[in-house]
Amino acid sequence: MTPAISVAGLTRRYRGQLALDDVTFDIEGASITGLLGRNGAGKTTLLRIIAAQEFASAGRVRVLGASPVQSDAIAGRVVLIREDQTFPELRVCQVLRVASLFYPNWSAELAEALLADFDLPPNRRVRKLSRGMRSAVGMVIGLAARAEVTLFDEPYAGLDPVARQIFYDRLLADYAVHPRTVLISTHLIDEIAGLLERMVVIDRGAIVLDAAADDLRGSVTSVRGPALAVQEFAAGRHTCGRRQLASQESVVVIGALAALDLARARALRLSLEPLSLQQVVIHAAGRPETDVRDRTSA
């Protein structure tokens, strides 16, 4: 099967800055993937290139089997409403009507329902809306378009928790009936963790973690204790985020721990703590040991 999104060796250079550095990943068929990372990590650039709003410096991008920059290759099949989306000088209802022109699967009922859910005034000009409400307009378009590839770039900037929960519920409900490839970039990882099937973490333009969310859930552990004991325990395991403070050391161990491992940790007087997905991302996107040291002491 052709992957919905296929990115290979993708690099984007701006003057004196590497925004994306040799990024490679595929997303097959219907799924909900989280694109996570710090501010300026390259999330928006990656989404923009997938949606043909930006061009790659090097590498190959295929969306639904074709290059997205090819004329109208992604028309009606891909949607990306950005966090800082520029809207034309139109009312909310007009913006939705315009969007509906371009998407063959557009659901007017869903748009109507979402409008009511988010309390959006249909006759207000989009530019006059508050930040959060403008984000809500973006969400309505992204969901109602039912595009095969649905990209969200920090979709809920400025939105209240109630509206965010509505978005999660609506996304999941509509996804169940109309499965599609959803790629969401966000900072609110714990909130969205339940929705994600896969997590791609990027830092400084490079992918630092790409795993099924289920594999990470409950199988990432923070190990803390005397430095020597920690090193002995961690030897041969997949680890990240090693930090040392005086004689104490902590490290994140990826992969489920068996009963034998737990017993050994007890014997070594190590404290184990399972990490949430948010903490996993913090460790993955944190800086390597060398410059982490001064931050831990802060």
């Binding site: 949606a51 409403i81 809207f87």
Partner: peptide
């Protein structure tokens, strides 16, 4: 000006 970015957001080439 303001119309092109939204057009491209909707996947128009």
């Amino acid at each position: 000006g303001r119309s092109l970015p939204f057009g491209l957001a909707l996947g128009v080439s």
